[in-house]
Amino acid sequence: MNVPENLRFAESHEWVREETDGTVTVGISDFAQEKLTELVYVELPETDRQVTAGEEVAVVESVKSASDIYAPISGTIVEVNTALEDDPTLVNSSPWTDGWLFRMRPDDPASVSQLMDAAAYENMTAE
């Protein structure tokens, strides 16, 4: 599996990318999208919402099931990927780039480094 090395990961399969402006971008891994199968709907959070790490913030729905997406860290939602409203399958076709879900401003920038690195995530999903 190709897991980008510049990303951090939550156990619930969200990835986090640190941006130069101090915000972070959040998506779900290739492993997760593959397990979910083709998405038909993505429900994204409201911007300006304050969220705590582990809180349910979004829902992704395939034909067969609805799955919760959790905030990987605590912070404020600053932007959501509105392109997913028209094409939720972007999450399937490009989970690491165009299929991102939302951007957050972390309460504590150091919280990102407490997430798994790419090697650890790859190990976790290799089983």
Partner: peptide, 8 residues
């Protein structure tokens, strides 16, 4: 099997 390549 629930699917092979995709339900759609």
């Amino acid at each position: 099997p629930v699917q092979y390549t995709g339900i759609r």
